[in-house]
Design a protein around this nucleic acid. Structure first.
Ligand SMILES: [Mn+2]
Ligand SMILES: [Mn+2]
Ligand SMILES: [Zn+2]
Ligand SMILES: [Zn+2]
Lengths: 126, 126
DNA sequence: AATGAGATCAAGAATTATTCTAAAAAAATC
DNA sequence: GATTTTTTTAGAATAATTCTTGATCTCATT
C-alpha cells in the first residue's frame, strides 16, 4: 500500500458509485494534484489483483471500479447513468433458476440489468 | 440487404459460434476477397440495427456477434474459449429469483457465465 | 442506353480506453 | 549512507472501433 494506492482506495470507498478510471483520476487529483492517470490505472490494477476492488464492465464502455467484495450484479439506469449493486440469490452457483445443459461447470457469473432506477422512475410518473 | 450484408449474415448463420468482427472478416473474405473490414463493421452494425443479429460482450474483449434472436445468456469456456447460448428462465423480466429493491424497472438483462464446457470437462477427468 | 439521385462501399485517418516503455523518484534493504 | 527494488510518471504505443470522404453501385426516369 503506497500513498497513491491508499488515496485511490479511499476515493472508491468514499462514494461507492462505480467510477471509471478517469473519474477516479479527477477525484483523486483534488487530494493529490500531481498524480498521473497512469498511476491511477496501475494502482487500480494492483487493488484488483489484491482483491480489494472489482472491475465492472458493461458492453464496451470504460471499465468501472467497485469496492463491494460481496458477489453481486449491477443495475444500470438508462436515464441518469447511475450504477447500483444488486444482490444475487444465495442459491448459486448456477442458481437463479437457470437450467444449464448437463456438463457445464460454472465458476463465475456476471449479471447486468438495464432499466430505470427508483429516482428516475419517480420523476417520470409522480 | 446488399450482397455483402447477405454474405456476412450467411456466415453468421452457417457457424453460430459468436465470431468477432475480425473473424467474420476472415470467413467472408473466402467468398468475397475484396471486402473490407470497414464494410464488415458497417454491415454488422446495420444487421444489429435491423434486429437480425445481436452483439455480445464480455468484459472488454472484442464484441462478438450472434444471430440467435431469442433472449438468452452466454457461457464462456475458460479452456477452449467457446461461447454457448444459455436459455433464460421464462419468469422474466427480473425473474431469475432476483430480489430487486422496490422501484427498479428492468427492461433488459445481460448474463454471462464463465467456467468449463462439457467437452473440456470430459478431457480433464475421463 | 444514358442520366442522375441516393445509398453503400472501401481506404485510410481519427478516436478512445488502455497498456507499455523508460527514466526519475521513493522506499526498502544492506 | 550506498545499493537494490519498487513505484511513479510522462509520453509513446496499441487495439478495437468509428469517422471521413471519394468511388462505386442501384435503380427509377428519361
Ligand atoms: Mn458493484
Ligand atoms: Mn448467443
Ligand atoms: Zn436513474
Ligand atoms: Zn471448452
Amino acid at each position: 500500500m503506497t500513498r497513491q494506492r491508499r488515496i485511490i482506495y479511499d476515493a472508491l470507498m468514499a462514494k461507492r458509485d462505480h467510477p471509471t478510471a478517469d473519474e477516479v483520476f479527477s477525484r483523486v487529483k483534488k487530494t493529490m494534484p500531481t498524480i498521473s492517470l497512469a498511476t491511477v490505472y496501475n494502482s487500480l490494477e494492483k487493488l484488483v489483483e489484491c482483491g480489494l476492488v472489482r472491475q465492472v464492465n458493461r458492453d464496451r464502455e470504460s471499465t468501472r471500479f467497485c469496492p463491494n467484495l460481496k458477489e453481486h450484479g449491477h443495475f444500470y439506469c438508462r436515464e441518469c447513468g447511475s450504477v447500483h449493486d444488486i444482490d444475487l440469490p444465495s442459491t448459486r452457483p448456477s442458481g437463479l433458476g437457470l437450467s444449464l445443459p448437463p456438463g457445464f461447470k460454472v465458476d463465475h457469473l456476471d449479471l447486468n440489468l438495464l432499466g430505470t432506477c427508483p429516482e428516475c422512475g419517480a420523476k417520470q410518473q409522480p
